[in-house]
Structures are given as C-alpha cells and as structure tokens.
C-alpha cells in the first residue's frame, strides 16, 4: 500500500484493546469466583493478543514508509525508541509512548471499579467492537481486515459473556441492580466518544479505511437495548459528553495505568523473556 495515513488509526485501534486488556487484567486473582476470574483473564488475553497484531502491523507499516511519510507521524513515536537505532517493533509502540501519544477511547482507561462496572464496560465495548470490526472487514488494508476477521470470533464470546452478566446483575438482587445502575450512570457519559468523528477517521478514510460511525451507533444501540430489555434496565436519556482520548487527551487515571504497565520496559529497555 502506498498510503500510510491510517498509521494513527491503527494505533487508536491497538490502544483501545491494549488499555482495556490491561484494566481487565487487574482482576486476575481477584474475580468474584474462580470461573469468572478465568473468564476475564481470557478476555484480557484475547484483547492483548489483538493489540499485538495491530501494533505489529503498524510497526511494519512505519518501517516501509519513506522519510516524508515518517516525518508526518514522528509525533506519535516513542521517544526512547529513537535512541535504539533499529527498526520499530510492536513492544516499542505498546510500552514506550508518552500519555499524550495514546489514542484510546476514555472509556477503556477508567479504573476497573466494581464487578458491575467492569461487566458493563466490557458489554458496551464488545458491542461497539463487533460493529466496528465488521466494517473493517471491507477495508482496503488486507492485513487490518485479516486482524478484524480473526478478532471478531473472540469478540462474539466477549459480548455473549458480558451481556449475560449484565442481565444477571440487572435482573438479580436489589444490590446487584443498584450496582449495575450506578455503573451505567458513570459509564454513559463516556459512550459518545465511540461514535464521534475525529481526525483519526478522516486520515483512515484517506487510506481506504472507511468506517460509518452512525451505522455503528445504530447497531450498537440495538444490541444494548436488546440486552437491557432482558436485564430490566433502560438507556439513559442524557447526552454523553466526555471525549478527548482519540486526540490524546486523557483522564487523570491514564498516567497511573501507564506507570504500572510501562515500568518494566522503561526500567530495562529491550528486556525480553
């Protein structure tokens, strides 16, 4: 492909799944029951695996750019890597960028909260990821389409598992219902960003990766409503307003997450297992 304008969009896609995978992994050893602990750990594994494929693809794309194209994305590259004197690799992108260089949705970086919060976020995100990746199957970047195809099978499990939990909590006890409603109040303001067009989508479209955000939103609402109906929940009527992640403007929680996630690669650059 001669066009590299979707480099930032690839980072956005990768950052979403890496950061959510990192958040979910905080439950490892702390799940409410062994099976659910394992379930969430498996979901994290899938998400981090997807991130790895996306970062590897982005790194390969960068390495084949000419100097003109490289200069245009220089602000997105990890500073420590520039001293390594070698080609860009997936781990550099995952672990060595600064906070403002991450382009993930804010909803993915929020602290894990209680079980209801983690479940509802996963359900919202998986329902979104399913529609988005379905559109990516049609894109001009065949490697990205391949990653989407691979990931979609996993996303189907994530959506099914989290939806069943949303129903169990919504339709469960007074306490579980109170908690899932609280989670909804907290999460809802962050759902708008999923469907808000930014420069990322414009740049991606230039490279032949066209996502139709309104279409994704309509399908997403349909899925969420179907789950909520069984859970006895209703979608809030308030307008979601929180945004900024796609432009590198993050919540106060992001820095702490990165500090933990990046510690090893920062302290021991190029460390390998």
């Amino acid at each position: 492909m001669a066009n590299y304008t979707h480099f930032s969009y690839l980072l956005h896609l990768a950052d979403n799944v890496l950061i959510l995978g990192q958040r979910n992994a905080e439950w490892t050893g702390h799940g409410p029951a062994l099976e659910q602990d394992i379930a969430l750990t498996n979901i994290s594994l899938d998400l981090v695996g997807q991130a790895r494929n996306l970062y590897a693809h982005a790194a390969a794309l960068y390495n084949e750019m000419d100097s003109g194209a490289k200069a245009l994305v220089d602000h997105l590259l990890p500073r420590p890597w520039k001293a390594f004197g070698r080609e860009l690799q997936e781990d550099d992108l995952a672990f060595l960028r600064d906070e403002r260089q991450y382009l993930n949705l804010l909803i993915t970086e929020l602290p894990k909260g209680d079980w209801a919060f983690t479940i509802l976020r996963q359900c919202f995100f998986s329902a979104y990821q399913k529609e988005l990746y379905n559109q990516l199957l049609q894109c001009n970047d065949y490697q990205l389409a391949g990653i989407a195809e691979k990931s979609l099978k996993e996303v189907a499990y994530h959506l099914r598992w989290s939806s069943e939990w949303v129903i169990r909590l919504g339709d469960g006890t007074d306490e579980s219902n109170r908690r899932i409603n609280n989670a909804m109040q907290e999460l809802w303001p962050f759902t708008g960003e999923l469907f808000t067009k930014t420069g990322l989508e414009t740049d991606a479209a230039q490279a032949g990766i066209v996502v139709h955000l309104q279409g994704i939103k309509d399908q997403w609402l349909q899925t969420v409503n179907a789950v909520f109906e069984q859970a006895g929940l209703t979608v809030p009527q308030t307008t979601p307003f929180q945004q900024g992640g796609k432009e590198g403007k993050h919540t106060e929680h992001m820095g702490y997450l990165l500090a933990e996630m990046q510690f090893l690669q920062r302290a021991y650059p190029n460390a390998a297992w």
Partner: peptide, 8 residues
C-alpha cells in the same frame, strides 16, 4: 495461523 489472537 493462530487459533486465538492472544494464544500463548
């Protein structure tokens, strides 16, 4: 080809 994206 991998079975799952993150299969270790």
């Amino acid at each position: 080809t991998p079975t799952y994206s993150g299969c270790p």
